[in-house]
């Protein structure tokens, strides 16, 4: 949704991920970019160049934080040190909302550094929602939870992934970062209709959308963020926008990163869909 309580009532357009190979270009050429998404953990450090670059970016651009290791879905307690550093970074960036994934990745204090899939159970939904609430209370900005790509399903699951997402978002009263590429990847890996997913998302909770490319293997698809967005994902994005309205959209490109202009150009393809969604929303309002 444009400007809702889950994205701090902002109205951001198309952004891209801030990545090291583009630092130089951005700082020297100062391209016009609506907003940047940063990986929070890369800046949860004590000093040095990454923070200096971040401060320079913050002087000129709007920045939103995206985390990769809070692991809302891990059964263990939240990591206090992680939370403390996240809160400090939120103060620095003044991010209007922040996001992390609907997944787990650590157990008994050991970290896998991966986004591992959840079993879709009521117990898991309860634990996950409680942890999102704790983070939200601590950082004092809205938190959006992002659906991940997955390559495995569990016998334990009691519901579909989208039912689980609803259950968690409802329980935590949090926002959703809807990753349409992840929906597409998982739909191919687990043989479901991606439109069933997009059509079931609680539209009023969507704070932000991710688009990305992926890699196709013989028997599965891997979410690699190293290619342009494919047509079926743009179509899914279009459908998502019909439901949620023009929403802050971010292109993820994390591997084999091409030039800044190429990445930004790919992201800006979203503009056309956003404009159509805005027109539709306006027509409906009238």
């Amino acid at each position: 949704m444009p400007a809702n309580r889950f994205n701090g009532f902002t109205d951001y357009g198309v952004g891209i991920g801030l990545r090291v190979p583009h630092y130089q270009h951005i700082l020297s050429r100062k391209p016009v970019v609506d907003w940047f998404e940063i990986i929070s953990e890369n800046y949860m450090i004590d000093g040095g160049r990454p923070l200096q670059v971040l401060d320079q970016i913050l002087d000129q651009y709007r920045v939103v934080q995206h985390g990769v290791s809070m692991y809302f879905g891990s059964a263990e307690k939240l990591n206090r040190e992680h939370l403390r550093r996240l809160k400090a970074l939120v103060k620095r960036t003044k991010t209007p909302w922040l996001s992390d994934h609907l997944c787990w990745g650590s157990v008994d204090g050991r970290y896998t550094h991966d986004l591992l899939p959840m079993p879709y159970t009521f117990e898991a939904a309860r634990i996950t929602a409680a942890k999102i609430r704790q983070v939200q209370d601590c950082v004092e900005v809205p938190v959006a939870v992002e659906n991940v790509s997955s390559y495995a399903e569990f016998h334990l699951s009691e519901m579909t992934e989208w039912e689980f997402l609803n259950e968690v978002a409802e329980g935590a009263d949090c926002g959703i970062l809807l990753d349409v590429n992840n929906i597409y990847v998982s739909s191919r890996n687990h043989s479901f209709d991606p439109y069933d997913y997009v059509n079931s998302v609680p539209a009023e909770r969507v704070a932000q959308i991710h688009i990305a490319g992926h890699s196709k293997y013989q028997k599965y698809i891997l979410d690699t963020h190293d290619h342009p967005v494919i047509d079926p994902v743009w179509k899914l994005y279009e459908r998502a926008l019909q439901r949620v309205g023009p929403t802050a959209t971010l292109l993820e490109w994390d591997d084999n990163i091409p030039s800044f202009d190429e990445v930004h150009g790919e992201a800006l393809k979203a503009t056309r869909f956003l404009a159509a969604a805005a027109t539709a929303a306006l027509a409906q309002a009238i």
Partner: peptide, 26 residues
């Protein structure tokens, strides 16, 4: 015991994707 197979991959093969991903990343 915990991962479902699908029509293309066994439980072992699905788990292996995560096992390899973990080590490649680290």
């Amino acid at each position: 015991t915990f991962i479902k197979p699908n029509d293309r991959l066994t439980s072992f093969e699905r788990l292996e994707i995560y096992n390899r991903q973990y080590w490649f990343r680290l």
